[in-house]
Write a protein that binds this DNA or RNA. Sequence first.
DNA 1: GTCTATATAACGATAGAC
DNA 2: GTCTATCGTTATATAGAC
Lengths: 216, 216
Amino acid sequence: MRGVNETTQVHPPGDGAAEARSRRDTRARIQQVAVELFTEHGYDATSLREIAERLDVTKAALYYHFKSKEDIVASLVEDYFGQIDALIAWAREQPPSDEVRGEILRRYVRIVAEQDRVLRMLHQNQAAVHTMAVAKRRGELFKERMHSLVDLLAGPGATLEERLRATMTIGGASIGWTFYGGQAVDREELGALITSLACDFARLPRPTAPAGPPGS
Amino acid sequence: MRGVNETTQVHPPGDGAAEARSRRDTRARIQQVAVELFTEHGYDATSLREIAERLDVTKAALYYHFKSKEDIVASLVEDYFGQIDALIAWAREQPPSDEVRGEILRRYVRIVAEQDRVLRMLHQNQAAVHTMAVAKRRGELFKERMHSLVDLLAGPGATLEERLRATMTIGGASIGWTFYGGQAVDREELGALITSLACDFARLPRPTAPAGPPGS
DNA sequence: GTCTATATAACGATAGAC
DNA sequence: GTCTATCGTTATATAGAC
């Protein structure tokens, strides 16, 4: 068994070599198919038999790559929340300012954009995921991190209205992407638009740099 | 078997007579317990045995009141989406104006506030609910209605930015309520605050009447 | 309207060969 | 790394007594 996570991307790069991936990385293919089926039919309603059939292997083969059904989800959860936690950690060591708050929103939207398939799956199976061991280990996944982000965005002594504004901003950005991210619109443009609207909601000036170099 | 729905409230009024409800309306108590367990552990992970045990009856008794496990959820779906569909139908026969758009948001928040337990349950089990027969019968539950509301809020020839603004407004309002609705804040105040912030996001003036008589 | 008892089916997971 | 075969468990749903 490999470790539970090696920051594997769910959907492979797909740039070149569109064919020669017959059994190159079965683990990533399992994750990919699992995300699709868990999103479409739900985590519990998706059996390992279904996943195995779509990959033309048997159930037992899946158990070579993941020690349980939950472990497939756990690997995805680590990917997504690892990035969110990194964002929160970064934001906590910045001096509070409107520039930093705008940057938080920009980075948040970028994470949502990159991980949108996984995020949608997690959202659609929140209750099921919440009961898993990985949720115990990493805390209340969505709620806890939402509150952290809200604190960072609204500041420590914020009123209920200010915290609500931050919550609705972040929530709106997530919902906005999950509704339009799967459609045939330019993803770059969509991300910029959502970031811009989020700043507007939060009463922040738009970030000056359109796309700074990844320094995180 | 009764009809699938009689617009039963999930949590009984609870005004007076806090005790004399021993076996008065078992059907409503089943719904109530089911919402709780489906929200906490997920739809598929909650067995009818668990529901029955918490009510001190047997599984077979549940089948007297609901023809299947799905039918319990279906009755709740009809409650919630019936109200949303009524809102959409009402909005469609109004002349478009900022007053009407503000009123749409006000009514939307009121529905979310009234049905928050059911809404949270539906959100946390979206994938599972989506595969049910009731979803086939009533169309893509969340997506379809979100688009209808967005069209009504942004107008027919709206740009992508305008539709995104409407989507993020509605999404933000839902998320805002589900995060703070369960806490010890005044629900009336919270609803007013969220409505006000939603109008701000949507660039609408606040509705003039603070709480009009229920005429819908 | 609620009970006991049971039919039928599918699931997650493991053992051990290759 | 993938296979066949199977174990043990639990689920939804029904039949029929009371």
